[in-house]
């Protein structure tokens, strides 16, 4: 039995301890906003926040999240999250949308740490999040727009 918190709710899962958090979230808890794209920490689609840090949920085992606080896209809230999601919507960033849970969480985490990110900061924080629709130019613009809204 592994216990941890997801979006503020205590979870107790009777699942294999080597199961990646990604599949526990999706198949165990039914939170499907976190996406599978590569399973190898190569695409960022599965990004969640573990104790506030952006983490590839496909590469962290249940064992390693025991007792920790997980935030998934479904639980993204607060000023920064609102600013990011508003900017994403205002600029119509998503195309297919599949990568965007991960992009949005990565952006939230960047802006939480750094309210005035430069292009280089954005490159460093988000280049691990692939978007096959190549919405990158709008992602960049939306991060800047969210930063302005938060200023």
């Amino acid at each position: 039995m592994i216990r941890f918190s997801v979006n503020g709710q205590q979870q107790e899962l009777d699942l294999e301890t080597d199961m990646p958090l990604l599949w526990a979230l999706r198949d165990g808890i039914g939170l499907t906003g976190t996406k599978y794209g590569c399973g190898q920490a190569l695409c960022g689609a599965c990004t969640v926040l573990v104790d506030g840090q952006p983490t590839r949920s496909c590469q962290i085992r249940l064992l390693d999240v025991a007792g920790r606080q997980i935030t998934t896209i479904e639980g993204a809230s607060g000023k920064v999250a609102e600013a990011v999601q508003q900017a994403w919507t205002r600029l119509d960033v998503p195309q297919c949308g599949y990568c965007q849970s991960g992009q949005v969480l990565a952006a939230i985490s960047l802006l939480t740490e750094n309210r005035r990110p430069t292009d280089a900061d954005i490159d460093a924080a988000l280049s691990g999040n692939l978007c096959r629709c190549a919405t990158y130019a709008r992602i960049r613009a939306a991060v800047h727009e969210a930063a302005r809204a938060l200023a």
Partner: peptide, 9 residues
């Protein structure tokens, strides 16, 4: 659908 796609829905 931009909102749904920005909020994981």
């Amino acid at each position: 659908d931009s909102l749904a796609k920005s909020t994981g829905r």
